[in-house]
């Protein structure tokens, strides 16, 4: 029923190689991401999926290759700069502030957008207060969107895992990103939580037009929601295309079934 408008290439990854000493984590990886699409990176454990995401995110600096985001090519960039360009991410092993409430956790996602300085904020003086109200309203929209109103004031540490994942997504959304990197958003979830998360990912993509790059090893989920899929194995790209193309790719089948290497 949905008609999505997939736009031009906004992220172009060219010939990326990443080594940790003698270990080759990624070898000559190239792929692109188009605006408004859901792009999945899949592969068995240790295939280099998270490393790839960390390169895009600016956590790792690849030895070779280039990454171009909206025409801007970067080689050495830290994660703050990447965030300022409009790329947000969530983490495989949640990195939330456990003792803080859901509201405050998501509020931290607005950090980059807060203009007033620490002193003004601490004293809640005029413009700082107005700004806080505006940000709070934005955060409330996210809370509403993710249907976590009942937990607004609950410390994150007390929530079940599936909800913590949702809060993690909420914090990334609070940055109003143009592109969202999701690192195994469905890991460790039960079937129902997975379905919920799928719906939220599709809704984010649909409502906000956010481009999404996600890593996942649940093949069923990936095939259902992504527009295009990149398959990695042992740090190399072995497949790239629509879910159907990838599903029928000999190399991919071999990597997943582990017949011969």
């Amino acid at each position: 029923m949905a008609h999505k408008k997939i736009g031009d290439i906004i992220l172009d990854v060219r010939n990326i190689s990443l080594r940790f000493g003698g270990v080759k984590a990624l070898t000559d990886i190239s792929f692109d991401v188009r605006e408004h699409e859901i792009r999945a990176i899949i592969g068995p454990n240790g295939a280099g999926k998270s490393s790839m995401l960390n390169c895009i995110n600016g956590v790792y600096t690849p030895q070779e290759g280039s990454i171009t985001f909206r025409g801007q090519t970067f080689k050495h960039m830290n994660s703050r700069q990447v965030a300022e360009m409009g790329i947000a991410r969530t983490f495989q092993n949640l990195a939330l502030f456990k003792g803080m409430s859901v509201l405050d956790n998501i509020m931290t996602g607005r950090n980059l957008r807060i203009k007033s300085n620490l002193l003004l904020q601490a004293l809640r003086i005029g413009p700082a207060e107005r700004e806080e109200i505006a940000h709070r309203e934005f955060v409330e929209r996210i809370i509403d969107f993710l249907e976590i109103q009942a937990y607004r004031k609950t410390p994150v540490g007390q929530l079940p895992y599936g909800l913590q994942k949702r809060v993690d997504l909420g914090r990334a959304l609070a940055m109003e990103p143009q592109m969202l990197l999701l690192d195994e958003p469905m890991a460790g979830m039960n079937v129902e939580e997975k379905q919920d998360m799928c719906r939220f990912i599709l809704d984010v993509n649909d409502e906000f037009g956010t481009t999404i790059v996600l890593i996942e090893h649940d093949m069923g989920v990936v095939m259902d929601i992504s527009d295009r899929v990149v398959v990695l194995d042992y740090g190399k790209k072995i497949g790239d295309g629509t879910p159907d193309e990838v599903r029928n790719n000999e190399d991919v089948i071999r990597a997943y079934l582990g017949t011969s290497h």
């Binding site: 029923m1 949905a2 008609h3 999505k4 969107f145 809704d203 649909d206 409502e207």
Partner: peptide, 9 residues
Amino acid sequence: PRGLRNYDA
């Protein structure tokens, strides 16, 4: 209207 943007029944 959430989620209904692209419906055209």
